[in-house]
Design a protein around this nucleic acid. Structure first.
Lengths: 332, 332
DNA sequence: CAAATTTGCTCAATCGATGGTGCACGTGAA
DNA sequence: TTCACGTGCACCATCGATTGAGCAAATTTG
């Protein structure tokens, strides 16, 4: 009894209820009262549409309306709680605002990032949010040329407004926390080591600044060799630490949960001296508080960041500034 | 110099290069050689398109072509590595096959699940993969009525083919592993407790079967009160265990990483006796191996599951069977 | 040099939904 | 009986890209 070949269209329904396609259309999109369609016909159409499993061809509808309601988001990875939460919350908030959210994961690959952005724009996305993009400016530039609004999240860019965590302040506070705990628990005063990330990245740079400023505040000087920002993967963090077998108190500032995986692996393989190590991590994970030696983590305030981001939508693109959102620090 | 109002269309480009829209279209979609457009014109059009920041209106293009290339996926949460990896890999594999992947996260909410499915179908998705859906049959039924293929992943359904992990076998093996380790490390022979999940869920049921069968194989009887499948959240697991303060060896089979969070919280709050507890978890997390007491985790084989899933695409919907994919067991 | 091909494009219909315009019919008032 | 409205709908152009059909000009063939 169902169509076996094609999807049902308003023309099919029109024939079946013996009315015009435009009448059917207006019933189905809710404008029937405005268009003075009788309640009788409206009910017949609605009923039939349900029976036939009809659903609008959004392609056609949007083509005509010249609005897509699509809001795109680019995310690098789903391999930590931060980006997972961003994607989840983004979807909820977008839907609550009547958008159709499309999130796509680009593997930290600049080319793929750009391709995905172009694809989203082809789908007439009305706004594109680049999260943690490696090359946000290229994306913003393309968006601008296509007349699409773009917003940077997590990582700032020059061509579009950016909502980012206050990495500096949170890193400074986390550094102080770790130093304090080294002092009270180990009777040792630093300096800490900085593990993970890339100095060329804005976020790593800002965090390093906070890290150094906390040391400076206490007049602790940090040897250059203590800055081990050798990349993001767990392996790179583990490798950077491989030769470090402390026989005295030590402390680490870990720059992401991914790096933390490497640090914890290293830590678990220390024979003695493992209990002489304290560390903290910039980023949160639910298992973090159970890791021996971990004194605290920074949780970025995803909800606030997204709220600020959504506030920018529809605004004139004049504001190219950065919006800083404070982080929460979780002490274990 | 750019259009300030609208997106550039092929008609704009046509005027600018003084050619017909159809010539422009064929240049831009790659059919120009077939349509005997000169290389000269093709190059001029391509250049201009780039200058103008042109990108196809996919809405219009797909409307005409009557193919969307969209492949949809519904995922419950991004709050564990399993679903995160599924989403990521799905996107990579879909793109490699020329699809445009749209993943949407439905918060384990049956209504939202269904709404999202309908929305994806409105966007003319050619195939819909329901991952861990709470009500996959309702979705499959709707897809069938709309003539859209649907596939179940992770959780089986009756109206569409399903690719799922071999929960039974992996649970049996994990149970044996935990029992073995209780024996060798604690000199204690079970029975274990089963924590987390919901018995009404297919996966939990299959895992419980495996759990019980491993016990039976060793002639260990499991008291009914040891089955604590009270839900998925960390809180529920922690609550279920709250009154359990073992002063003797104990072992737990934990049904998901979410439940594991609760278990680890409980475990970390045990004063004495914490080292008399061993557990294993059905699901993998990179920090799992560092949790004291954790003897192993089951990692579901996401890659194989997705490969099997993609193999089903385009097939006649006759095959409504279940495809079982073995899991990997990680021993700590 | 005329006929036959080939080259290089243009025309116009079409996909499905939408919404401005307009028409026929019914009702009530003058 | 006539006119003014109101009701209930149909008609048709339109969004942008695509594609089969077709045509004029250039080139080759006999």
């Amino acid at each position: 009894m169902e169509k076996d070949s094609k999807r049902t269209t308003i023309y099919d329904l029109a024939k079946l209820v013996d009315a015009s396609p435009s009448a059917v259309s207006s019933v189905l999109n809710g404008t029937w009262e405005k268009r003075r369609i009788s309640k009788n016909l409206a009910e017949r159409v609605t009923k039939l549409a349900e029976e036939q499993g009809y659903s609008v061809n959004v392609q056609a509808s949007l083509l005509r309306r010249e609005r897509s309601n699509i809001i795109g988001m680019i995310v690098p990875k789903y391999d930590n709680r931060y980006f997972g939460k961003i994607a989840e919350q983004f979807e909820v908030m977008a839907r609550a605002r009547g958008f159709f959210p499309v999130v796509t994961c680009t593997q930290r690959d600049p080319e793929l990032e750009f391709e995905a952005a172009k694809e989203l724009i082809s789908y007439q996305a009305e706004c594109l949010i680049s999260t943690g993009a490696t090359d946000p400016d290229r994306i913003s530039a393309f968006c601008a040329a296509s007349g699409v609004q773009s917003i940077n999240l997590d990582l700032p860019g020059k061509n579009a407004p950016s909502v980012i965590s206050d990495n500096y302040a949170a890193a400074r506070d986390l550094t102080k926390l770790i130093l304090d705990r080294c002092e009270t628990e180990l009777g040792w005063g630093g300096p800490l080591r900085f593990v993970g990330g890339r100095l060329a990245d804005h976020n790593t740079a800002a965090r390093l600044e906070g890290f150094l400023s906390a040391h400076k505040e206490r007049s602790i000087s940090v040897p250059a060799s203590y800055i081990m920002a050798t990349g993001y993967s767990a392996e790179k963090a583990a490798n950077a630490l491989a030769l470090f077998r402390p026989d005295h108190p030590a402390g680490l500032f870990v720059n992401s949960t991914i790096s933390l995986e490497g640090v914890v692996r290293w830590h678990s393989e220390l024979e003695g001296g493992a209990d002489q190590v304290r560390y903290g991590c910039f980023d949160w994970d639910p298992f973090g508080s159970f890791l021996p030696g971990n004194v605290g983590m920074v949780e970025q305030d995803v909800t606030t960041m997204l709220i600020k981001g959504f506030e920018l939508i529809g605004r004139p693109a004049t504001s190219t500034g950065q919006i800083l959102v404070p982080c929460k620090i979780r002490v274990f």
